[in-house]
Design a protein around this nucleic acid. Structure first.
Length: 830
RNA sequence: GCGAGAGUGGCGGAACUGGCAGACGCGCUGGACUUAGGAUCCAGUGGAGCAAUCCGUAGGGGUUCGACUCCCCUCUCUCGCACCA
């Protein structure tokens, strides 16, 4: 603790954040101040921050995230809303299991110990959560509903099992999520990841692709950037499927194209190496392997001629069939027609393998007569007018797309289709620390869902963690052995667990119901959910812009369609806060540039920590860490503390001026400044939560207040009015010191329960304004005039000013521009 | 490569709808108090100049009485997507 006052000089009690903060945290808890219940008579506000993974300790990113959320929650509470502000734990996940493998601690023990510690840390930050609604996703009470939703989705055909290629780490013997593959290697053991075909459970998010896309338009409270990312991820494109026959056979190759208007320009066909026909058509298995090895790599295009030809349905032309590394199996049909003149990738491929390039689209009438055989430098990918396209020549691209698609449909050789980039969501993980997928495999009955009354399928505790040989569940006989719910015969449980993104896709729904009260049934709408949903303000990192937010939007719709809620969208407003940066890089253990929140809170207290992280940058921007900046925030709170302490007796004695009484000139000025500050802080919070400028306004007020010596009663009453309002404004930001000083000037507890202050527009209005006078746009003078003067008079005053008159001299005045209450610009000639 | 966003003092950042560029904080300079000051308080602080003044919002052009703000071009940085046919 830095020495701020030497004992001899200061008689007042020193600001000791530790004592103050502990005191008020206890009081809040005892009084249950932040506990919430549904109350139809009051307007609700659901404020939510992304819950943390209990990794051990919170980091500065959490402090920032939760400080932002807490200001919003406290502000809305003071405004009279019934605020739901919950917190919980995203408690399943690989780190717990890795800790078990490495240190022999059970994931459960590790997780719950971390939760206990981190909960203590959040408590010390003074965050206004309703802990009665805490959720912990690794608790059976929670994950049983993952299982219930899964079964409901199976019933609706929204959960299904199929074989698919996955990222597989042979060393860890598990599937890796895409984001766990770093530069084609396993993030944990650095082993090369391979593509492996596995039976996987999928959730059919694609069934909602269209709705998820079209309702992006409704996400007006989200950052545009995030909405764009959602749209791109869903990736809708209009096009056509076209069937090419393989020459000399009856076999078909179905391709997808967004440019049916270029069909006459197709000079070859490409199959993905993973396409079922690839292996069938190619005799040279070594060559195929080579192409496969380069699959999905951006560096170069590699192809292999199959020796077969396809017949173009529109002109019966025979074109060669290639296998190409750049054709993705996961998108479209896994096969494309290649139009090198109008697709740059096809163009590069054609150049490399000496394949013909035929132009079928021209940009304008004048360039139709392109010299046949002349080298194209690159593909023309835009639209235009068709040439060399048989009966369709002369049509515009957009018209040709329609007509060619219609022609294909008529001949039974194709149709218009819509494709999405969005894939179904593979949720199977060969991991222990997750929700068991509630499915039983019976030799007689096949795949059987666990029946609802048998939920939850509990994750067994007594398992061994070796880190090799796959999921520990494979070794747990008591877990594996089960009787079939249908026939009663011997059966085996599914050992895969769910992706942890499932847990976080509906936790905001669980909060509405409250701890020990999470129950769903599709029988009728749930009144608690109807009251609270959707979340009014969601706050979190932009790194979840696609996955978590998209999955949550999907789940919310599934829950809606189960008849549980009416809400389609989970989050009305989204605030994505920036990263915490130090020395030019994101704070991270590996960079060694972390600041420990524990250290910060011990040294300066939570109010200072919160204040700094809110003051240093607007929430959506990155925050550059500064030790000196923290000192500045601490100094600010100390100044307030000292100021109130010094006048404590006077403040206690004075009744509030009620914002009306006239006092000394300085007193009136302070009164005005106070009203202006209330206005400014309120408007800055309302305007995209710009807390940094709100805090700056409070600093200005404090600067004015510290220069104010209230000798007379009237002035002291003004001063008290300023102090009270300052504390009220400060309350959402630095609640502990606000509470303490509020009490010390003789108010009852608690300031947190006071209404947000209102300003009086008349009191805030300036009676005098500074008039800026420009000549030809250059600043030439400033003077004070009374506010609201008519333009004529302002003009006169400006022209009469001696300096201005001198500057004008004999020159002619061409024009005078007057901006009310701001400036006069005099345009003069030579 | 494509898409989005950003570039303002020594630093973090302000600036309504086109109207005083640099609020507020940090740092720095000077002073007060002091045995001392890395505490606190007061004053100053974009650059150049004794000054009047001039120059300044990545760079260049434009629109305008007036541009950090609008338009065009160039450069740099950050983020997202990266062969989606």
């Amino acid at each position: 603790m830095p020495e701020l006052f030497s004992g001899d000089l200061m008689v007042e009690e020193r600001y000791d954040p530790k004592t103050v903060e502990q005191k008020w945290q206890n009081i809040w808890e005892e009084k249950g101040l932040f506990r919430t219940g549904a109350d139809a008579a009051r307007e609700k506000f659901y404020c939510l921050e992304m819950f943390p993974y209990p990794s051990g300790k919170i980091h500065m990113g959490h402090v920032r995230n939760y400080a932002i959320g807490d200001v919003i929650a406290r502000y809305k509470r003071m405004q009279g809303y019934n605020v739901l502000h919950p917190m919980g734990w995203d408690a399943f996940g690989m780190p717990a299991e890795n800790a078990a493998i490495k240190h022999g601690v059970h994931p459960s023990k590790w997780t719950y110990e971390n939760i206990r510690y981190m909960k203590g840390q959040l408590g010390k930050l003074g965050l206004s959560y309703d802990w009665d609604r805490e959720v912990t996703t690794c608790s059976p009470d929670y994950y049983r509903w993952n299982q219930w939703f899964f079964i409901k989705m199976m019933e609706k055909g929204l959960a299904y099992r199929r074989s698919s290629y996955v990222n597989w780490c042979p060393s860890c013997a598990t599937v890796l999520a895409n984001e766990q593959v770093i530069d084609t290697r396993c993030w944990r053991c650095d082993h090369a990841v391979v593509q492996k075909e596995l039976e996987q459970w999928f959730l059919k998010i694609t069934a909602y692709a269209e709705e998820l896309l079209s309702s992006c338009d409704d996400l007006t409270g989200w950052p545009e950037k995030v909405v764009v990312m959602q749209r791109n991820w869903i990736g809708k494109s209009h096009g056509a499927e076209v069937d090419f026959t393989i020459n000399g056979t009856d076999d078909m190759i179905r391709i997808f194209t967004t440019r049916p208007d270029t069909l006459f320009g197709a000079t070859f066909l490409c199959l993905s190496p993973g396409h079922p026909l690839s292996a069938a058509l190619v005799a040279d298995s070594e060559g195929l392997e080579k192409v496969t090895a380069h699959y999905g790599k951006v560096d170069e295009k590699i192809g292999l001629f199959t020796g077969s030809y396809a017949v173009n349905p529109v002109n019966q032309e025979k074109i060669p069939i290639y296998i190409a590394n750049f054709v993705l199996m996961e998108y479209g049909t896994g096969a494309i027609m290649s139009v090198p003149a109008h697709d740059q990738r096809d163009f590069e491929f054609a150049k490399k393998y000496g394949l013909p390039v035929r132009e079928v689209i021209t940009q304008s009438e004048s360039s139709v007569s392109h010299v046949p055989g002349a080298e194209l430098a690159e593909a023309y990918e835009g639209e235009g007018v068709l040439v060399n396209s048989g009966p369709f020549s002369g049509l515009a691209s957009s018209e040709a797309k329609q007509q060619i698609s219609a022609w294909l449909a008529e001949k039974g050789r194709g149709k218009k289709v819509i494709n999405y980039k969005l894939r179904d969501w593979g949720i199977s993980r060969q991991r222990y620390w997750g929700t068991p997928i509630p499915v039983i495999y019976c030799d007689a009955c096949g795949i059987v869902p666990v029946s609802e009354q048998d939920l939850p399928v509990i994750l067994p505790e007594d398992v061994k963690f070796t880190g090799t040989g796959g999921s520990p569940l494979l070794e747990s006989e008591s877990f594996l052995q089960v009787s079939c719910p249908k026939c009663g015969g011997r059966a085996r449980r599914e050992t895969d667990t769910m992706d942890t993104f499932v847990d976080s896709s509906w936790y905001f729904v669980a909060y509405c119901l409250g701890k020990d009260n999470i129950t769903f049934s599709g029988k009728s709408l749930n009144p608690e959910l109807s009251y609270w949903m959707p979340v009014d303000q969601y706050v979190g990192g932009v790194e979840h812009a696609v996955l978590h937010l998209l999955y949550s939007r999907f789940f919310t719709r599934v829950i809606r369609d189960l008849g549980i809620t009416c809400a389609s969208e989970p989050f009305t407003n989204l605030l994505t806060q920036g990263m915490v940066i130090k020395d030019g890089a994101k704070m991270s253990k590996s960079k060694g540039n972390v600041v420990d929140p524990d250290y910060l809170i011990n040294r300066y207290g939570s109010d200072t920590s919160r204040l700094f992280s809110l003051f240093a940058a607007p929430p959506e921007k990155d925050l550059e860490w500064s030790d000196k900046g923290v000192e500045g925030a601490y100094r600010f709170l100390n100044r307030i503390w000292a100021m109130v302490q010094r006048h404590q007796n006077g403040l206690r004695a004075a009744a509030s001026a009620g914002g009306k009484t006239s006092a000394s000139d300085k007193g009136r000025a302070l009164l005005k400044k106070t009203h202006q500050t209330i206005r400014k802080v309120t408007m800055d919070i309302e305007k995209e939560y710009h807390f940094n400028t709100a805090i700056a306004a409070m600093m200005e007020l404090v600067n004015d207040m510290s220069g104010f010596e209230p000798f007379e009663d009237q002035d002291m009453r003004v001063f008290r009015f300023s102090v009270e309002n300052l504390l009220l404004l400060l309350c959402p930001f630095t609640p502990h010191i606000a509470e303490e000083l509020w009490e010390r000037i003789g108010n009852g507890p608690s300031i947190s329960q006071q209404p947000w202050p209102a300003w009086d527009e008349n009191m805030a209005a300036d009676e005098e304004v500074e008039l800026v006078i420009q000549i030809n746009g250059k600043l030439r003078g400033k003077l004070m005039i009374s506010a609201g003067l008519p333009d004529e008079q302002v003009r006169e005053i400006a022209l009469k000013d001696s300096k201005i008159a001198e500057a004008i001299g004999q020159k002619s005045i061409r024009k005078v521009i007057i901006i009310k209450g701001r400036l006069v610009n005099i345009v003069i000639g030579e």
